[in-house]
Amino acid sequence: MALIDIKNLHASVNGNEILHGIDLKVNAGEVHAIMGPNGSGKSTLAGVISGRDAYEVTEGSITFNGKDLLDMEPEERACEGVFLAFQYPVEIPGVSNTYFLKAALNAVRKHRGEEELDAMDFLRLVREKVKLLGMDESLMNRSVNEGFSGGEKKRNEIFQMAVLDPKLAVLDETDSGLDIDALKIVANGVNALRGADRGIIVVTHYQRLLNYIVPDFVHVLANGRIVKSGGKELALELEEKGYSWIEEPVGAR
């Protein structure tokens, strides 16, 4: 059984259909890259998977671990193991990163029927993950994303992913706004979290990130459809030729 099975997914924003029938299967242990030009529907796909309000699914289904994902509230999806690394992480003034993450982790643990972690155990876990990702521990005491640099925000996303230990991680344009050093740090973090139990969907405009997070599969999204799928070589081909050679046949339909 696939970890996530997307079938004939149609979704619209304010009545405009953006996704015109997506089919995608991701198994545990696989890394899939979704590439495509601006406006192709990449972020919409990430939004629909995570349950953002603005998107309305008009047709199709998403099955996650055998359950109907579209039937769940966003927090249920998160508790079931869907994690979205945001393109633009949100600031929450006055709420410390530690407090936020502890509330999140305990919500997830409660859902799984596990004991809530107390402050000591939580701190131990956090220290371990901080080390794994080479993070600055002082970020933990600051308010969620407040005053973080672009790189710190993205790293914080990956850090949260490490602590929450999701089954499926969707990275939405995680490379945007990062210089090459920050990109490497984030990519190393993601690679450290690759594993046989986890599926990862990397949404990106550029091939650059895929030099560091090497995908098992690459899908090209154009005009709301997956128009081409292949191995990691496809990303290189796109880098070389651009998107236009793929888009054209769709425009001519």
Binding site: S50, G51, R52, D53, E73, P74, E75, R77, A78, C79, F83, L84, F86, P89, V90, I92, F100, L101, A103, A104, L105, A107, V108, H111, Q160, L164
Partner: peptide, 9 residues
Amino acid sequence: FYCQQRGIA
């Protein structure tokens, strides 16, 4: 949404 996506109701 950011909070919800992390599992918080």
